[in-house]
Write a protein that binds this DNA or RNA. Structure first.
Lengths: 134, 134
DNA sequence: CTTGACCTTCCCATTGTGGTAAGGTTCAGG
DNA sequence: CCTGAACCTTACCACAATGGGAAGGTCAAG
């Protein structure tokens, strides 16, 4: 299987497959002419990477997960620790975004959205920014 | 006021102040020796930028907001449209993250987190990735 | 006049992804 | 046998937003 077929089989672009190889997430073989060759295990690895990425793990985390996956003597505690840290980060991010959404909804709700210039949204940003109000 | 003072007054790093100038969000003056000079209006602009960034607006959006802020004949509809689009994007992002969190919580809840290798988290990622299950 | 704290520009790194160009290979059809 | 399409390779550039650092100029206080 060459890289194009691997891309189709794994759902990961050629570009990203080469990138993952570059950062040592997988080591496909090479044919005599220099073409990369992918076996079933490589496809499985690529799909593992895709699944972990869809769960929001960073590529660095995916690298760690891959190592744990391939380590028969791993401790599930290590996987759980990594996952819990990720969940915590995701929750923090969601909290940030929700705070923004809350503020923005309030402001947008107070904005007439008509042809006149008066706008609570702009006013609020500007007054938060007003040095004389600091 | 030179850039160091402007950074303190606005809460924006020297680095970012120069970057915002580079992308034309503000045009500070220069002294004879080439030092940037910031007046009260520049500080206000920088704080406006900071306030908008804290609400999650992209720098491109901030540029648009700045233009609207400075446009006395703006329509509040334009501001609202921009804001509503941003809110929609934020909500979509939150939904994505919450979906990840939900899955991860389930998996982490089923993981013993002990010294043994058995781990539902890894298993789930690997089975999602299993080409024979596709 | 030196020293330290500024300032300037320019380049590099990050994260994850896409694009593009220049060149080699392989295969099918005429 | 030749040509063109459809692959493959490497090596760059780009994005968004931020930080780091080097090399050099400037200024104010002592």
């Amino acid at each position: 299987m060459n890289i194009g077929e691997a891309a189709k089989a794994s759902g990961i672009s050629r570009k990203m497959i080469r990138y993952y190889e570059e950062i040592a997430l997988l080591q496909p073989g090479r044919t005599a002419n220099g073409y990369r060759v992918y076996g079933p295990q490589d496809i499985h690895t690529l799909r593992f990477i895709g699944a972990a990425r869809r769960l929001g793990f960073s590529v660095a985390d995916v690298k760690a997960l891959l190592a744990l996956w391939q380590d028969r003597s791993r401790s599930s505690a290590d996987v759980k620790r990594l996952t819990d840290g990720h969940i915590t980060a995701l929750r923090a991010r969601v909290a940030e975004l929700n705070a923004m959404i809350g503020t923005l909804e309030t402001l947008a709700g107070a904005c007439d959205g008509d042809a006149r210039p008066h706008c609570p949204i702009i006013n609020r940003i500007a007054s938060t920014a007003d040095p004389s109000s600091a």
